[in-house]
Computed example of a mutant assay.
Amino acid sequence: MIDYRLLQAMAAVLEQGGFEKAANYLHLTQSAVSQRIKQLEHLLGQPVLIRSQPPKATSLGQRLHNHLQRVRQLEAGLELSANPEDLIIRITVNADSLDTWLPAALVLEDYPLLRFEVSVEDQAVGLRRMKQGEVMACLCATPEPLNGGDVIPLGVMRYRALASPAFIQRYHLTPPEPAIFHQAPCLIYSREDRLQHQFLADVAGTEPLYTHHLPSSEGFIKAAKAGLGYGMMPELQVADELQAGHLVDVMPGYSLDVPLYWHFWQMESPVMETLRASVARAASTALY
């Protein structure tokens, strides 16, 4: 059984940004905070903090911090000792949702002091952070729930293969000839982003030869408008560019629908239940 006073000392160092601030927050001496963390590390047989400025959690420390947050949420739901200001919700989501419809879902009127720590992973791989205990919920494209978890479908995000008119003219993509698409430069968000590969497999049975890796959703669109390459982009994010003619379909009529799912633990706190309902509502108005 873990002594939660030790976990609270570790959490205070991470949340306050240092040992001295944690000591002031907990009304302890700095030495007492340090001793509690050393005791925790001795019990576990490995470090929970990286002594940097500010201190950072190790992989184990992050999982323990996440566990403590879940305990705090359950206490808040039972109207026990949890302070709303102490509640931190860690979730991992795909970049395109974060850049379009998701932020509105994070505004919870019942929990105005709730804090979010959002990490971004490709929709095909984000679930691994939840499996490792690093986050409390995950928005991704995987329908199978984790052991001890549950999942709800949210809808699909529609992607289209787009480029600037000048790019299409430069690479002679009008009329669209699938056989030459793989020779044109392709924009890819990350190593895990396979949407462009799926597009080429669908229309030409091949893979891209030349790629640019651009890990920025906004930069991805700007690069396409500038003529650096073509790529798969969510309709939600490029409506204005399509209407203005800055971006056009490289294969008219083609679209790729990516399903999105919200993963959560079956032992769900009232805070996480409220968040799940808010996410579902926002998705129902934004996604197909």
Rank of each mutant, 00 (worst) to 15 (best):
117 E>I: 02
274 T>H: 03
255 S>E: 07
48 V>H: 10
10 M>C: 09
101 W>K: 01
216 S>N: 14
163 A>I: 09
229 G>W: 13
211 T>Y: 04
281 R>A: 12
118 V>L: 04
173 L>K: 09
216 S>D: 08
74 L>E: 13
228 L>W: 14
70 R>E: 06
12 A>N: 06
43 L>H: 14
41 E>I: 02
216 S>L: 03
29 T>P: 05
132 Q>K: 13
70 R>N: 05
113 L>H: 08
260 L>Y: 03
25 Y>V: 11
88 I>D: 11
133 G>E: 03
124 A>E: 15
151 V>E: 02
38 K>P: 04
215 P>R: 05
195 L>Q: 11
250 V>S: 02
190 S>R: 03
284 S>N: 04
78 L>T: 03
226 A>W: 06
30 Q>M: 12
10 M>N: 04
175 P>E: 11
35 Q>S: 08
143 P>M: 12
135 V>Q: 00
24 N>T: 15
73 Q>I: 08
165 P>T: 12
45 G>T: 05
11 A>S: 14
104 A>W: 11
139 L>R: 00
103 P>S: 06
285 T>E: 15
254 Y>R: 06
156 V>W: 06
184 A>I: 13
103 P>N: 09
216 S>Y: 05
149 G>F: 03
168 I>F: 10
2 I>G: 00
165 P>Y: 12
131 K>G: 14
133 G>T: 06
5 R>D: 14
